[in-house]
Design a protein around this nucleic acid. Structure first.
Length: 503
RNA sequence: GACCCCAUCGUCUAGCCCGGCCUAGGACAAAGCCCUUUCAAGGCUUGAACGCGGGUUCGAAUCCCGCUGGGGUCGCCA
């Protein structure tokens, strides 16, 4: 690697279209982008949709839209093409199969016929004994011919990577130096699934090589599977890229950022009125600094100053409060006309207003009633204090209401059909399953989502709010309810002086 | 549990690589004061950190080791 002419820098962001566009994706994209631009290289977008059961075209669209919104434009990608396409892994199946053939021919991979049940049992036993947990290698010893016969007979199988059984695998991480793993501690990773699609490990390595990726800049959660990737590169005889594992964004409790504890969808940030340049700046301060006493900088400034030497490895806690403060600074710096433009783009577009009209047209007598009737469509978080009493239906204690709100939020998240009819069906089913009167639950949802007792029809309202805002508000409402005093079980004893619970 | 990574104010971080300039700097948050018809904004002030123990050294936040703590991974998900 010392004398070869350095390859032109090329990096990628490789999201999986299995859900909402994630802040973590924007975070990693930002560092890839900054590094690429700083180095005069290319930044590409590749869609990793090899999970056929969870990938959706809608999610892919949402990810592209969100990445456009934050303003990180890629040089090659599924929508704009490029010299190394296709940029969607589902369209590259033949490439992966061909590469797996090579590995098999070289004895670097083998067929495995083990059932999910057996694997489960093996893992269970290994865990019980406190051993290293991974494939026990049963099929690795089978003669190749046997595998061929069984495969030909139609028996389902996967293909696994034959990891070296002794020695250690050492690779260099740009931020950590040498990282060392015992080969014996590494699993024989599945490369090709029963359905013929590759797993991340195979597809990712093959594509990174074929697409000329020079630096793999990704989240730290990948660090422990990197040795498998290294073995793959070596098995193919390919030059290793440089690995850069960025620290993980964290919840307040330091765990990996998650949607149960934080708004995690980029759509939330857009809908809640964050400016993309502020978000980017904030993400740029997560594990990176431009200088000792400076934290406000534009994308261009970040690119100019960019270096991995300025990355700090402690996992940064993602703090909405600080993001908001930074957003405020950006907002104040805009001139009036620009603020108007931002507002238009945000919620005051014809399109958005138009969507609200059917909800209010029968309910307003004069134009001036539009704003009071729809105000909660134009705010991010809402204040529950005025409806505190109503949030605790008769006979309910704070905990069950909070849990109900939270649980419904999760059900909402798992629910694909975000239409009024779909949501109503979901809510009715939820009420039945969880011991709520529909009437009672519907009011709770209304209050949680809007902090109002009277609104346009509930489910149309939720649709208008969108999944992210709805979820966020239900969670906020749950937190609010949790802090409410429990109602006295019995009518208060007459001796008890009236305690004024002033907040 | 096994393996890997990490460790400066509550939070984001500067300083650490190349030990002395650090009685550890900035920002968010908090508290107080000022300004002010209100609310913001703004100004000023305060409290707040080198996890612990051993080394190395004249000298350690900075280098080394151990401990502790936190995190990640251990899926036919990525």
């Amino acid at each position: 690697m010392s004398d070869a002419a350095p390859r032109p820098v090329k990096v990628r962001i490789a999201p999986s279209p299995t859900g909402d566009p994630h802040v973590g994706t924007a975070y990693i994209a930002l560092f890839n982008f900054a590094f690429a631009k700083k180095s005069g290289g290319k930044f590409i977008l590749r869609i990793e949709d090899t999970d056929r059961t969870r990938s959706t075209p809608e999610s892919e669209v949402a990810i592209l839209r969100a990445l456009h919104w934050v303003g990180l434009q890629w040089d090659e990608g599924p929508d704009i093409g490029g010299p190394n396409g296709p940029y969607r892994q589902s369209e590259r199946a033949a490439i992966y199969r061909e590469h797996v053939e090579k590995l098999m021919a070289a004895g670097a991979a083998y067929r495995c016929f083990c059932t999910a049940e057996r694997l489960e049992a093996v893992r269970h036993e290994q865990r019980r004994q406190g051993l290293f947990v991974g494939y026990d290698g049963l099929c690795r010893g089978r003669p190749v011919a046997e595998g061929e016969t069984r495969a030909a007979a139609g028996e389902p199988f996967v293909i696994r990577l034959a990891m070296p059984r002794t020695g250690e695998i050492i690779f260099k991480d740009r931020l950590r130096g040498d990282v060392k793993f015992e080969s014996a501690q590494m699993d024989d990773q599945i490369l090709l699934k029963t359905d013929g699609f590759p797993t991340y490990h195979l597809a990712n390595v093959v594509d990174d090589h074929l697409m000329g990726i020079t630096h793999v800049i990704r989240a730290e959660e990948w660090l422990s599977s990197t040795p498998k990737h290294v073995v793959l590169y070596q098995a193919f005889g390919w030059e290793l890229p440089e690995f850069v594992h960025m620290p993980l964004l964290r919840n307040a409790d330091k765990s990996k950022i998650s949607k149960r504890k934080n708004p995690v969808s980029l759509d939330y940030y857009r809908d809640a009125g964050f400016l993309p340049e502020a978000l980017l700046n904030y993400l740029g301060t997560m594990g990176w600094s431009i200088a000792g006493d400076r934290e406000q900088f534009t994308l261009l400034e970040m690119i100019e100053a960019f270096s991995f030497d300025r990355v700090s490895l402690g996992g940064p806690v993602f703090d909405l409060v600080k993001l908001s403060a930074m957003n405020a600074d950006y907002l104040r710096a805009l001139d009036d006309d620009e603020v108007v433009r931002r507002l238009r783009a945000w919620r005051f577009s014809d399109e958005h207003l138009r969507a609200l009209i059917p909800l209010v047209r029968e309910r307003i007598q004069r134009l001036d009633e539009f704003v009071p009737l729809t105000e909660f469509f134009f705010s991010g978080d809402v204040d529950y204090a005025p409806v505190a009493k109503d949030l605790l239906p008769k006979g309910r204690v704070p905990k069950e209401v909070a849990d109900g709100l939270l649980l419904f939020g999760e059900a909402l998240d798992a629910h694909r059909d975000f239409s009024a009819a779909g949501l109503e069906a979901l809510a009715r089913e939820f009420a039945e399953k969880n011991g709520w009167q529909t009437k009672e639950l519907f009011m709770l949802l209304r209050l949680g989502a809007t902090a109002r007792k009277a609104t346009p029809p509930l489910f149309e309202t939720l649709v208008g709010l969108g999944r992210e805002l709805t979820r966020r508000r239900l969670r906020l409402a749950a937190e609010f309810v949790k802090k409410l005093p429990a109602p006295a079980a019995q009518p208060a004893a007459p001796t008890k002086p009236a305690a004024p619970p002033k907040a």
